[in-house]
């Protein structure tokens, strides 16, 4: 379990991470989401002891990362943004060094290296120099390095960047498998990725946490007012009076094109299925030729844009205000 409290990191006047607090529970996959420069890597670097914090603390399994660094680091496997590889070593030699440094016993060494390479699909390239491996395989060596020694917490900074689609799927499956035995924290600016593999999503913007919840909850967060899109093979004049009869519809927009009209109906009702059933019945009774009905679901993307754009606009306004103040002085 990891507890991060009031973490702040300043570079001179620039605040990269500001008063960040969260708790990571065992056995889940966490996703750090945020636009470039939001403070994801900085937070991860602090959590793994690669960087000091200006304020705040990080406690990993009861060990403070700054005070009790050696013990805390034994619980962590970390893949930084750029995989830290020695190009002149082979994956086996490289993993041997990392395993020894993590305190893996000599008798378990060979078995563990073989197992980790099997998991990451590196066995074929075990004895090739790292500098001769493709980018995807280098990334795998980086991930293998993080999992060796079987630490309870695995932190991966943008593990799928620069991989081809097939490799991305393979790495995602690997991470899902890791999530069965370890706690995994990964960062990404790709939403679909986080949505696909994470149990919890943490959205960071300008060094501040703007949301922290399960992906589904974040989506429903946005659905205060649900909307349903209806397509019908008729004119606006036919559908409009029928919509007026639906008392549960709070508002609507209609567009007409080539004899087909598309209506987006909004409702405050929470029972979506009932709403759609009622709608379908009323359209049927009034002989409106509806051929498609789709509930419009807010995607994580909308949540993300809403939250991060909002905060960056607020930030810009703040900066603007500060500038004005300075000008007045």
């Amino acid at each position: 379990m990891v507890e991060v409290s009031h973490l702040t990191k300043k570079y001179g006047d620039f605040t990269a991470v500001s008063d960040l607090s969260f708790t990571i529970e065992d056995g889940l996959i966490y996703g750090f989401l945020g636009p470039n420069g939001a403070g994801k890597s900085t937070t991860m670097n602090i959590m793994t002891g690669c960087l000091s914090a200006t304020e705040g603390e990080v406690v990993i399994d009861g060990h403070d990362i700054f005070e009790d660094a050696k013990e805390a680091k034994k619980c962590i496997g970390y893949l930084p943004e750029i995989p830290p590889l020695y190009p002149d070593l082979t994956p086996v030699e490289y993993l041997e060094f990392v395993a020894r440094a993590k305190g893996v016993k000599a008798k378990d060494l060979d078995e563990q290296i073989a197992d980790v390479m099997e998991q990451t699909g590196l066995t074929v390239y075990a004895n090739r120099l790292i500098k001769n491996l493709s980018k995807g395989y280098k990334q795998r060596v980086g991930i293998a390095q993080a999992i060796i020694g079987y630490p309870s917490l695995i932190i991966l900074d943008e593990p799928t960047v620069g991989l081809d689609p097939k490799q991305i799927i393979e790495i995602r499956n690997l991470i899902k498998n890791l999530g069965k035995k370890h706690t995994v924290v990964l960062s990404s600016h790709i939403l679909s990725e986080v949505q696909a593999i994470c149990d919890r999503v943490m959205i960071i913007s300008r060094g501040k946490m703007v949301a922290f919840d399960a992906p589904d909850n974040l989506e429903s967060l946005m659905m205060g007012e649900a909307s349903i899109e209806v397509k019908a093979n008729c004119g606006r004049d036919v559908i409009e009076p029928v919509i007026a009869k639906m008392d549960f519809v709070t508002g609507y927009d209609i567009t007409e094109e080539n004899g087909t009209c598309t209506a987006t109906l909004r409702t405050a009702e929470t029972d979506r299925q009932k709403v759609q059933g009622d709608m379908f019945r009323i359209f049927g009774e009034n002989a409106v030729p509806v051929f498609q009905m789709t509930p419009v679901k807010a995607s994580l993307e909308d949540v993300f844009v809403e939250l991060t754009v909002g905060s960056s606009e607020a930030y810009e306004a703040e900066m603007e205000a500060e500038k004005e103040e300075e000008a007045e002085e």
Partner: peptide, 12 residues
């Protein structure tokens, strides 16, 4: 090579 990050994150 950025391997210093590896050394920092290892229990050394």
């Amino acid at each position: 090579l950025r391997t210093d990050q590896l050394l920092y994150s290892l229990p050394l």
